[in-house]
Structure formats: structure tokens, C-alpha cells
Amino acid sequence: MPATPAVPDGKRPTLADVAARAGVSTALVSIVMRGAKGASEATRERVLEAAREIGYRPDARARLLRSHRSRLLGVQFGLQHPFHADLVEGVYAAAEPAGYQIALSAVAAGRGEQRAVETLLADRCEALILLGPQAPAPRLAELARQVPVVSVARRLRPSVPGVEVVRTADAEGAREAVDHLVALGHREIVHIDGGKAPGAADRRRGYRTAMNRHGLAEHIRVLPGGLTEAEGAEAARTLAAARPRPTAVLAFNDQCATGVLDVFLRSGIAVPGDVSLVGFDDSHLARLAHIDLTTVGQDIPRLAGLAVDRAIARLEGDGAPTGEHVIAPHLVVRGTTAPPR
């Protein structure tokens, strides 16, 4: 065989190019690429070697379209959320070995959830995995009448027919964070909440429950916050000016916590020397060396894997009713918590 590529530079190699390279028919190349019977072992090796030499890659999307199935799982995610990025990585890891591909559609400042989902449906996604959806229950029910839907990281009360829920026990995670801070000796513990974000109500409830259980009801203080660094920073500016200042802060999530950390450090407030800080999610952001954030970890591989498993189960005829799957959190202690001075 010639050593030079059989296709012009910049052109995607085709089955015909592989056939010309291997000296066989296009039909025979198709048989080899599909793994079907009808080619000898020697011919199969010759065709695969030719494909490697010219850089041929099967067009999986076209093959799936011909089979009248897309085998695509559509994933809606928040572009600005580090935790969602980690979940997406876990979804890929779970879906590809099962023979499914992933189509992503982002929610951003100028692109809402409805547009994100419409794009996935237009791409012929067979099921939807929605990360932290904020759509109202009737909209989720409408989607579930079209395709299987899995909601990740959001409690649905009451449950929505046809929608699987995979989430962390958020209230339990907040309780673990407060228990950790109390064990260190903190009493003035403030919670910066997530407003109407998925999981915020449960985390707020877990904080209040734990404070009451430790006899600290009079020290309960919840500040408005949100999911972003900017919202964490705004709450932190309020705390930096407070007298007396709390000795510990539980932020809604890691991103919010990084906004708190930035304002505190710029204001000369040492973390954890003056104020201890806890986030929530254990996203890759929390693990950065210069942040080193104590946080409530969500089991990202398990959440992502279970979301994919449930989506595929619905597609492949699992007759079990839809339900809620709740994963336990775990506290990850790093460098932003210490006993109060």
C-alpha cells in the first residue's frame, strides 16, 4: 500500500477512500466497519489498517440516524456552574460505555432553559438529563410526556409524573457542615443561602435544624445570597461590616463561597483565622490549591451514573415507576475551617 494519505488535506475520509486504499469494494468496507459477517479476518485487518492510515472515523451520528434511533442523551447544564461541569464529565463517563452519546445544551445569561431544551429535542435526543432545572413542575411534566426526563440536584415536591429525580440529601449536608463548625467551637454561624436555586430550601432547613439541635437558635442568621461569586461577595461585604462579626459562614455553594473568600481576604479578614468558611458541592473549584475550601461533597460520579442509568432504563423498557433517588453527602475538611480565636 502507498504510504501517503489517499484523501486531499482537510477532507474527511469516506468509506470509498478506505475502499480505494485497501483495494476492496465500498460494500466490503461497510461490512467491516459495522462488524457484520462477510469478510475474512485478513480482509478485515487490511481494511482497518487502511482506515487507520488515512484517518477514517465512522460517522456514528449518521449510522444512528439510519437505525431510526439517535441513542443521544440530552444534557441541560448551567454554563456558569462549576458543579455542573463536574456532573457533565461524570455523565460522559457513564453514558459512553453503555453505547449512548451525549448532546449538551447550555443555560446562560442570554439563553434560558426552554431554549436549551428545545435545542436538545431538535437534535433527536431520546431522553433528557436536566442539571439543576428551575422550570416549573407543569413544564417538566410536559417534557416527560415527550421523552424520559431525569432531574438532577433538585427536589420535586410533589413529585412530577414521569420525571426521575436524582439528588443529594441537601439538608443532611448542611447539618454536617454546622456540626463540624460547632465541634470546632463556633457559635456565631451565618448561612448565606441560595434564594430560589434548586437545593436552597433544603440547605436552609438543614442549617436551621442543626443550629436548633445545638441550642443555638438565638444565633441563627440567614443572609440572602445565590449561586454566583458576585452574590457571595455581596453577602460578604455585609458580613465584613458587621459588628460583632460571625466566626463562621456556611455558603450556599462553592462558587458563592469563593466570592466570600475574595471579599474577606481583600478586607483583611483572615480565613480561617478570623472567620471559618464552608462551601457546598466539592466542585473542582473547591479543590484548587489557592482556595482549599472545606465543603460538603456531593458524590458526583454516583449522581451522574445514576442519572444516566435511569434515563437508559426508561428508554429500554424498565417498567418500574419513576421515583426519587437520594444520595448521602460527605464533609470534606480542608484549609478554610479552624477553631475560633
Rank of each mutant, 00 (worst) to 15 (best):
Y56W: 11
Y56M: 10
Y56P: 03
P58T: 10
P58Y: 07
D59R: 11
D59W: 07
A60K: 13
A60V: 15
R61V: 15
R61C: 06
R61D: 13
R61N: 12
A62S: 12
R63A: 14
R63P: 01
R63V: 01
L64C: 09
L64D: 15
L65Y: 09
L65W: 12
L65G: 05
L65F: 12
H68W: 09
R69F: 06
R69Q: 11
R69D: 07
R69G: 01
S70T: 06
S70A: 13
S70M: 07
R71D: 06
R71K: 14
L72C: 01
L72Q: 07
L72F: 11
L72G: 04
L73V: 07
L73T: 13
L73R: 12
G74K: 08
V75L: 06
V75W: 04
Q76K: 01
Q76F: 00
Q76N: 00
Q76P: 00
Q76C: 00
F77W: 11
F77D: 01
G78Y: 03
G78F: 02
L79P: 01
L79T: 10
L79M: 12
Q80M: 02
Q80E: 13
Q80P: 00
Q80V: 02
H81F: 00
H81Q: 02
P82I: 02
P82C: 03
F83E: 02
H84S: 10
H84M: 01
A85V: 00
A85M: 06
D86M: 00
D86L: 00
D86H: 03
L87W: 05
L87S: 01
L87C: 05
L87Y: 04
V88S: 06
V88L: 08
V88K: 05
E89F: 03
E89Q: 09
G90T: 08
G90D: 08
G90I: 03
V91S: 04
V91M: 09
Y92P: 03
Y92R: 10
A93F: 01
A94R: 06
E96H: 15
E96Q: 14
E96S: 08
E96R: 15
P97H: 11
P97K: 08
P97E: 14
P97D: 12
A98N: 14
A98F: 09
G99L: 10
G99A: 11
G99M: 09
Y100P: 01
Q101Y: 08
Q101V: 01
Q101T: 09
I102A: 01
I102F: 02
A103S: 15
A103R: 13
A103V: 15
A103G: 08
L104A: 08
L104I: 10
L104T: 12
L104K: 11
S105E: 09
A106P: 15
A106L: 08
A106E: 14
A106G: 07
A106F: 10
V107M: 09
V107H: 05
V107L: 10
A108R: 07
A108S: 15
A108F: 04
A108H: 11
A108P: 03
A108C: 04
A109Q: 12
A109V: 04
G110D: 15
G110L: 14
G110A: 13
G110I: 12
R111L: 05
R111Y: 08
R111Q: 13
G112S: 10
G112D: 15
G112F: 10
G112L: 08
E113M: 02
E113C: 01
E113P: 02
E113Q: 10
